[in-house]
Each structure stands twice: as structure tokens, then as C-alpha cells.
Amino acid sequence: MLITISGPAGSGKSTAAKALADRLGYDHVSGGDIFRDLADERGMTPLELNKQAETEEGIDRDLDRRLREIAAERDDLVLESRLAGWMAGEHADFRVWLDAPLSVRAERIAEREGKSSEVAREETKERSESEARRYSDYYGIDIHDLSIYDLVLNTSRLDPDGVVAAIATVVEAYNPAGDEGKTPVTVDYEF
């Protein structure tokens, strides 16, 4: 089974994806890790690379192409990124969207990255707006359209174990036969 976990920065995607992969005995691939590596390689912060990606669409397209290739080639995988649900296309068996209010996400990011909540909030807001514009411009994706997801979960009142337990419960109860008549997500992207 290929499970995608998507959501904005600070929603708990990485933590949940790693723990869910461990629980299910699956591999885990993180688009965020790939993006942060790209930023490090260029001597930039993720926010700086996001800004550069607004004028250099090859940055996003390279990352997204890698995610699509991974999705097409692997099973027993938890694939995690903001667009994993979209990029995995017809290969995804189960799509999860995690979210939390901006204030909660900014606190998490501030703690993780050792910065003030105010700075984290502003950077997170800017980054989200930048990404939403690019997703719309490049692929015609409205990141706020959650209709492709099998599970949408607000993580603000759950600890990481609770998030994983909730996802695992739904995944384990998932009946793919119930997808009959459901139109699969197919998107034709130009990379």
C-alpha cells in the first residue's frame, strides 16, 4: 500500500509519517527532507529557497518529479510532502491531510528550529502563501481543495502518538473495494 501524508508546515507530517511507517513496517520518504537538502546544497534556508522557487520553477518541478517517480516505483511506503497526495496520483492507495491552526504550527516550528514564535509564524505564513501560488501556477492545484484526501485530521489537540493512532485506525479499517465508482485522481503534469 502507498500512503501519502500531506499538510502545511508544522502540521505534524514528518513525525506522523515516520511513526506510521514504523508501525506498519513500511519505508518512509520525506519531500521536506529532500527540499531541505536542496536548500542546504545551495547554502540557503528553506524560506530563501521557496522565494527562489517563485522565479525558478525547475526547483519545484525537480522535487515533484522525484516524488512522482518514487510513488510509481514503490509499495509499502509512506510518502510525505505538501503535495504527496497530488503527486502520487493514481499510485496512492490512501491519502491523508494533516493540519492545525497557524499559531499551533508556528509554535511547533519555533521549538523545532530554535526561533521565536513570531518569526516562525511570519516565515510559515510567507512560505505557505508562496507555495500556494506556485502550486496553482505550475499545476493548477488549489492546495485548499481537500477533496482528494481519504482522511483530513486536525492535529492541534493530539499528541504525536494520538495522530498516528488515528491514522492507523482509519488505514487499517480502509476498504479499497469501497472505492468502486470513485473517480481516481489523475493529473497530467508537465515536468
Rank of each mutant, 00 (worst) to 15 (best):
E113M: 08
D137G: 02
D99A: 06
V78D: 03
A132Q: 01
R61N: 05
E180C: 12
G178V: 13
V152D: 09
M1V: 03
I70R: 05
A173L: 13
S147P: 03
S117C: 06
Y139D: 00
A84L: 11
V29K: 09
L47T: 14
V164I: 10
L77S: 03
R66F: 10
T45I: 03
A165I: 05
Y139G: 02
A132S: 04
S128L: 09
Y26P: 01
D137H: 06
G89E: 11
V171Y: 15
D188K: 15
I167C: 05
A19P: 04
A21V: 00
I70C: 09
A84C: 10
A19V: 00
G114T: 00
I148E: 04
E129F: 07
E190P: 08
P8V: 00
Y135D: 01
I70F: 05
G140Q: 02
S6P: 01
L153S: 01
E54C: 10
R68G: 02
M44Q: 13
G10E: 00
G89V: 05
V119P: 02
R65N: 10
T45N: 05
H28W: 11
A84V: 11
V78H: 01
D33I: 10
T169C: 09
A39K: 07
S81Q: 02
P101K: 00
I59G: 03
W86G: 00
I143Q: 00
K182E: 11
I34E: 08
Y189D: 13
E111T: 15
R105M: 06
L2D: 03
D75T: 13
I148N: 05
R42A: 15
E48M: 11
A106G: 09
V187S: 13
T15H: 04
G181L: 13
H91C: 11
D75S: 15
E129G: 12
T124H: 08
E180T: 14
R95T: 04
V152M: 09
R61I: 05
L158M: 13
A92W: 00
D161G: 12
L102V: 08
